[in-house]
């Protein structure tokens, strides 16, 4: 085998082919060895081989893209994240605007409510004749009963901090009987035929 031709064939095939593989190829097809230089020259790609694309290639291509139907665009637009974020932003804007309007329209709270109210410790104590449980409910706790604790002497007692003010209240015995606080006196009519105790703090 001509070493020069072998070298040319090896250059044509590249380093991925081993010398053994190239020699076998040359033995099977001796003409390949002799024409290696012609093939190398013919298959060589000139460095400046590709003409440029038209300058407006991308613009032309975008113009050739199929148009989507308005229906599809609308449907897709409704459910893509970009649109949803705009919808969210719009909803937030109108929500805030509504809240602002409500605040402007709402009557100003009385100054007494706005001012910080002082708390007074109030002790409740009662000793009903017959009761298994006693709670206290009034204007200060929106008539949600607070349970009193049974004491060793059989009485029921409890202590809470209540903002200064004037409140009506009663004791609730066994969850079904309302009685005023006789120890404190100072009762007022509740408008339903019963009496409540008036607490002034």
């Amino acid at each position: 085998m001509n070493p020069e031709e072998l070298k040319t064939l090896r250059a044509l095939l590249g380093e991925d082919f081993s010398l053994k593989e190239i020699e076998e190829m040359a033995q099977q097809d001796p003409g390949l060895l002799s024409s290696a230089s012609v093939l190398s020259e013919a298959l060589r790609i000139p460095k400046a081989g590709t003409p440029p694309l038209s300058p407006n290639f991308t613009a032309k291509l975008l113009g050739a893209l199929p148009m989507r139907s308005p229906w599809l665009r609308g449907w897709e637009g409704l459910f893509n994240w970009k649109s949803l974020s705009w919808v969210g932003a719009a909803a937030a804007f109108f929500g805030l605007a509504y809240l602002g309007y409500q605040l402007i329209q709402a009557p100003e709270p009385p100054i007494a409510q706005v001012q910080e109210q002082k708390l007074q410790k109030v002790h409740f104590r009662t000793h009903p004749a017959q009761a298994q449980s006693v709670s206290v409910a009034g204007d200060f706790n929106q008539w949600v009963p607070w349970p009193l604790t049974k004491q060793a002497d059989g009485s029921f007692a409890g202590e809470w901090e209540i903002p200064e003010g004037s409140y009506a209240y009663s004791y609730l015995l066994d969850g079904n009987r309302w009685v005023p606080d006789e120890a404190r006196g100072n009762t007022i009519e509740d408008g339903f035929g019963k009496k409540n105790t008036l607490l002034n703090l």
Partner: peptide, 13 residues
């Protein structure tokens, strides 16, 4: 590649 080059050589001839 090897066979392709062989075919190409013959075709060119």
């Amino acid at each position: 590649i090897a066979r392709g080059l062989g075919h190409l050589r013959k075709k060119m001839e």
